[in-house]
Simulated scan of single mutants.
Amino acid sequence: MLGNNRFLLILTLFTGLLLPEVVAKPLTVITYQEAPFAEQAANGNQGLVIELLAELFARAEIEYHVVFFPLKRGMALAEQHTDYCVLPIERNQQRESRYRWIGPVMISRYGLYSHQPLKDPLITLEDARKYSIGSFLGSGIGEYLISLGFKVELTSNAALNVKKLQRNRIDLWASELISANWLMKQQRQDLGEPLLVFYTSLRAMACHNSMPDKQYHALTGALQSMYQDGFMKQLHDKYSTFLERSL
């Protein structure tokens, strides 16, 4: 009996050596069109987020691939499917428990823009309550304004709001400041400075709650090292400088 048990043990160990290791599936990282953070171009994906992801996953030694979806759909996929993440999205109380977070990846400031002068100046956010405000699906700032009872009209992407503003279909446009400047440059529209800068948020990468601890700690450790050695500052400075040079 002892001999049989020993034989079975040896056979089990030997078989285990022959079996291939279980290889973790590459992560699918969802982002969305929001220049200059992420864009699909003829010569490949580009933007601050694309460069950030390349460095982050290289340091973490994790395979990944990037796909573009509208933000609202990307958030649903990352919440429902394992091995999915989405970025950049704003962290807030409603979303906090739905994902496992890697961040922050950027700090964003938001303002209100108009196509025509307003009769009354915007001193506080409350002064904008009587106006229609454009945002886009999945935008944390749009959700924030809706939660406060503002009249918000949502589009599938941020660029459509510039057109709606020009056609007087909305009174104000709520946008992240860097993205707003970039979109104005691309569409050759000068809306000037925001009438009111009213919100600052932390944006991060949100991953499925089942993300293994090993992956989570590898990514958070990699991001921390990118802040510590100055990579993140250089990346943000690069895009800020390029934007100022292009305007």
Rank of each mutant, 00 (worst) to 15 (best):
H115K: 13
S156W: 00
Y64R: 12
A204W: 11
L48Y: 09
L122C: 08
Q186M: 09
E21D: 13
R203K: 14
W182K: 05
E244S: 09
A159E: 05
S225W: 03
F7L: 13
T28Q: 05
A42C: 04
K119V: 07
G103T: 08
M211Y: 06
R100F: 00
K25T: 11
L122Y: 02
F69R: 11
D120I: 05
S147L: 07
Q215C: 02
I170D: 01
A174R: 02
T12R: 15
K164W: 04
Q234C: 06
S175L: 06
L148W: 04
V49R: 01
V162L: 12
L165M: 09
G111Y: 03
V66W: 02
Q80A: 07
L56V: 06
L9E: 12
Q93M: 00
L11W: 12
V105H: 12
L196V: 04
E244Q: 08
N161Y: 02
I146K: 05
G230C: 07
L165F: 01
P36K: 03
A60C: 11
L2M: 10
I178P: 00
F69T: 02
V105I: 15
V67M: 04
K72L: 15
T15D: 12
M184T: 10
Y131K: 03
V86W: 06
L56P: 00
A218H: 05
K72N: 15
T155H: 08
M205A: 14
Y199M: 05
L183A: 07
S139A: 15
T31L: 03
H115T: 00
E63I: 06
D171Q: 07
Y239I: 06
P36G: 04
S175C: 05
L53D: 12
Q228W: 05
L87Q: 10
Y216C: 07
E96Q: 00
S179P: 06
P26L: 13
S147A: 15
R98W: 07
L27H: 11
S246M: 08
F14G: 05
I102P: 03
I10C: 13
G149H: 08
Q116R: 13
V105A: 12
F150Y: 07
